[in-house]
Write a protein that binds this DNA or RNA. Structure first.
Length: 833
RNA sequence: GCGAGAGUGGCGAAAUUGGCAGACGCACCAGACUUAGGAUCUGGCGCCGCAAGGCUUAGGGGUUCGAGUCCCCUCUCUCGCACCA
């Protein structure tokens, strides 16, 4: 009893609850007892409760972080009460451009800044009393961790899923550096204001598009928030359509030869073909021109001499635009190439244009324009006076000259030769079939998902474990030579070389080829932070192993993650990348499952007094201050009470006092509890109803209503200044424990509980006790409530009606014979007049 | 523009299947106990009305004995994606 809190003496006002004392005591105890470290190897009922690890910013923990963590912690603690061995690890996503930019801004090396930030985060997290197994803490910047991040890269490389290609990046010609899309503001560099250009650099990519179909299909079977699944589906962006070949008119032989001859798959050597992708092959009879992206490889070969000057100017100017402006909606621009192609359906010649509204990175980089039925093509056709033909019609007349007709439901084809009258769906397949017979088209599936660009010309990340040898070419670093340690360099800023800062350090990048022993050069790009976080959940359980990244038996025991909780901002990229990585490791035979997270829930966002929190507004909640003055238990419980967890809520400064009052009343209830006599019947019924409700609310993350239910029970238990019985109080302490673990532990100990409240099990409710035998039944007259009657729960319609009619307040509204009686047993009575 | 979600008292919010709208909490009002109250306890608290009663879940329409909940239309807000053919 050396470190216990002195109980308040009987007779004095029992205000003896001092959060700071209680919380310090139990945090120390949990630490001494290793209370939060499950037996990874031998746990009988493993439960992996995962929260998204944070980026350890210099500002310290944001209240949004705590909202996320606490929600996960409550879920985990509840599982623990249900008898699971819960593994709830914590770590830091500390590499990346975010840390690096901040370090540059304040002029400190990230290698010095990050450990300080991590210490601060750990201190703050410890104070909130999360059930974290600190023996498995990790940071992505630790060479012992990123050694295995590099290993993951090598597994992808071995599987043929990592490759290098040139890709467009935003380039600031003044700063001479690559910019991320979010660093481009209105087409200009956010730092110096210079207009940004696109540039092509060699980049490493992962072939995530090879997994597009699987990533999409598996979503159907995952227990995830529906909104998250929708976001992933949209991101993958599957569209089914057709690839159609248009033959460019041979300019030397002007007459007829460019037409596709019936049944001939052969093309003459002088024939140039343009392949387009469309989701609307049914509208091919309305395709009145073609458009190529300015980057399309055929642009220069098809352009006529007369048009060449104009085309070159347009292509040049398009290449100078930054990627952000290029991709945002603006007025249509374009230029005619002078060339024509044959529409394989109509056999008519249609002009070929170039316009930057067609993107090289989607489909084939070329489209057939159907201005009658596509808004973008329509806008373009109006501007350049190109023909607009209607080939789809609905019931009502429509003028496609003024607007594109995009409806398909209940519509049919017109002006489409032998396909006239077909529905859109039938038209699609019939036209694809017809084109296929003439080798002019085929059904094709396209995804908007692009391959994952993982290289960064930056410093603060794990070096990509690749060498370039003059003799052997691209050589992966042998696994036994990992990690490739990120060297501590002082000039870590990106500068006018435009390549990775590591490329300025010959002493680092010059090395020997492991294959031939000759001179080799290291890859000087580092990898994307998303790669660090794409596999961290695999590392946690085995973070104590140096010989392997993870061990198969442990993985099978603990994974997939039982419940993963995190923010919506990662609903797409992080979750998609970690799913992909897991699939690849599964396919390599390294994991026995291919989906990493069995259950995922996204929490909402917290605002303060109705306004978004931001540093510039100075309205950011500092968790330290609140924990200091109210205690972690009140802070945690309040965060969970202020709104529905999955929607977020409004942090109102005064609101926390209500929760603190509730915990104070809980404390006093334990101090004053009667031990003599027995519990009250009505209170006991309420208790069992509450146990049921809270036990149902917590698993579905409905924390605000669970807390409300406990408050309601508290009001019942103490109503009219009655002194609660011990048996009425004890289960409440258990129910409160996931939310307010410190006070619950303390009170549990005061109640004579052994060891820890979290070993006490979740209280059971007795279904027989839940229902009352009498009830107040509402009585409606013609659907309007006019009163209520006290009746037995199983009252018959006749008895209920008689009771209702004997109430003058009700009977006076029943004028004449009732037309109909609606009686819902045990619910209500409605007399329709 | 497309996609997702939301709109309920002074405020944050409840309302598993269509069945007493506003639980729980904040704020506010009154009272008790107090030398004192930013403690505690009791009661009140959607709007209009002295009352009987009427009105009320963004707005309009519909289905139903009965709609916050289901259907149609309109408006507003938040968050994603953003020329993806």
């Amino acid at each position: 009893m050396t470190d216990s809190v002195t109980p308040t003496p009987v007779g004095e006002p029992s205000t003896g609850y001092e959060p700071a004392v209680v919380e310090r005591k139990w945090q120390a105890r949990w630490h001494e007892r290793k209370a939060n470290s499950p037996d990874i190897a031998n746990a009988k009922r493993p439960y992996y409760s995962l929260m998204m690890f944070p980026y350890p910013s210099a500002e310290g923990l944001h209240v949004g972080n705590l909202f996320a963590f606490t929600g996960c912690d409550i879920h985990g603690r509840f599982q623990r009460l249900l008898g699971h061995s819960v593994f709830e690890p914590f770590g830091y996503d500390a590499f990346g451009i975010h840390s690096e930019n901040y370090a540059i801004k304040i002029g400190v090396h990230p290698g010095e800044l990050i450990p300080k930030n991590i210490d601060n985060f750990r201190r703050q997290v410890l104070k909130t009393g999360l059930m974290i197994d600190w023996s498995h803490e990790l940071s992505t910047t630790d060479p012992k961790y990123y050694k295995w991040t590099q290993w993951v890269f090598l597994q992808l490389y071995k599987a043929g899923l990592a490759y290098k290609k040139k890709a467009a990046v935003n380039w600031c010609p003044f700063d001479k550096t690559v910019l991320a899309n979010e660093q481009v503001i209105a087409g200009a560099c956010e730092r110096c204001g210079t207009m940004v250009e696109q540039r092509f650099l060699e980049q490493w990519f992962f072939r995530i598009t090879d997994y597009a179909e699987r990533l999409l299909k598996n979503l159907d079977h995952l227990d995830w928030s529906e909104s998250t699944k929708t976001a992933q589906r949209n991101w993958i962006g599957k569209s089914e359509g057709a690839e159609i070949t248009f033959v460019v008119q041979d300019m030397m032989e002007f007459a007829g030869s460019a037409m596709v001859s019936e049944g001939s798959g052969e093309v003459t050597s002088s024939t140039v073909e343009i392949r387009v992708f469309t989701t609307r092959p049914d509208t091919i009879f309305g395709a009145t021109y073609l458009v190529l992206s300015p980057e399309h490889p055929l642009v220069h070969s098809i352009t006529t001499d007369e048009q060449r000057r104009e085309v070159n100017a347009y292509v040049d100017q398009a290449g100078k635009q930054d990627l952000v402006t290029r991709k945002s909606t603006k007025e249509k621009t374009g230029v005619f190439t002078g060339a024509f192609a044959t529409n394989p359906a109509t056999h008519e010649l249609i002009p070929i244009w170039i316009a930057d509204y067609v993107l090289m990175e989607y489909g084939t980089g070329a489209i057939m324009a159907v201005p009658g039925h596509d808004a973008r093509d329509h806008e373009f056709a109006l501007k350049f006076d190109l023909p607009i033909i209607q080939v789809v019609a609905g019931a009502a007349p429509f003028d496609v000259k003024t607007e594109a007709f995009v409806e398909t439901e209940g519509c049919h084809l017109i002006h489409s030769g032998k396909f006239n009258g077909l529905s859109i769906e039938d038209g699609k397949s019939a036209i694809i079939n017809e084109l296929a017979q003439h080798y002019a088209g085929r059904a094709v599936v396209n995804y908007r998902l692009h391959d994952w660009c993982i290289s960064r010309q930056r410093y603060w990340g794990p070096p990509i474990p690749i060498l370039y040898c003059e003799q052997c070419g691209v050589v992966p670093v042998p696994e036994d030579q990992l990690p490739v340690v990120l060297p501590h360099i002082d000039d870590f800023r990106p500068d006018d070389s435009g390549i990775s800062p590591l490329a300025r350090h010959e002493e680092w990048y010059v090395t020997k080829c492991p294959t031939c022993g000759g001179e080799a050069r290291r890859e000087t790009d580092v990898s994307d932070t998303f790669l660090d976080s794409a596999w961290y959940f695999l590392r946690y359980p085995n973070s104590d192993r140096d010989d392997v990244p993870f061990d198969r038996a442990t993985m099978n025991k603990w994974l997939p993650v039982s419940t993963y909780i995190g923010g919506n901002e990662h609903a797409v990229l992080h979750l998609l990348y970690s799913r992909f990585t897991t699939m690849v490791l599964h396919d390599a035979g390294l994991l026995g499952f291919e989906e990493p997270y069995a259950r995922f829930r996204a929490h909402g966002l917290i605002v303060r007094e109705g306004a978004k929190m931001s540093k510039s507004k100075g309205n950011v909640v500092n968790p330290d201050e609140y924990i200091e003055s109210w205690g972690a238990d009140s802070f945690r419980t309040y965060l969970m009470f202020l709104g529905p967890y999955e929607e977020g809520g409004d942090f109102r400064d005064k609101g926390i006092s209500g929760v603190k009052r509730f915990l104070d009343r809980l404390w006093r209830s334990v101090q004053d509890a009667r031990r003599d006599g027995s519990a009250d019947v009505d209170v006991t019924r309420k208790l069992h109803q509450t146990i049921k409700k809270v036990g149902e609310d917590i698993p579905r993350l409905s924390y605000n209503t669970a807390i409300a239910a406990m408050m309601e029970y508290m009001n019942t238990m103490r109503s009219g200044e009655r002194t609660p019985h011990l048996d009425e109080v004890r289960p409440l302490v258990q129910m409160v424990s996931p939310f307010a673990p410190h006070i619950a532990e303390e009170l549990w100990e005061q109640l004579g509980g052994e060891h820890s409240v979290f070993d006490s099990g979740w209280p059971a409710f007795d279904a027989a006790l839940l229902v009352e035998d009498t009830m107040e039944m509402p009585v409606q007259v013609s659907g309007k409530r006019r009163g209520a009657i006290m009746v037995a729960k199983d009252v018959t319609q006749a008895d209920a009606l008689a009771a209702a009619m004997s109430e003058p307040g009700i009977a006076k509204f029943v004028i004449g014979e009732p037309k109909k009686i609606v009686f819902v047993p045990g619910r209500l009575l409605n007399i329709v007049v």
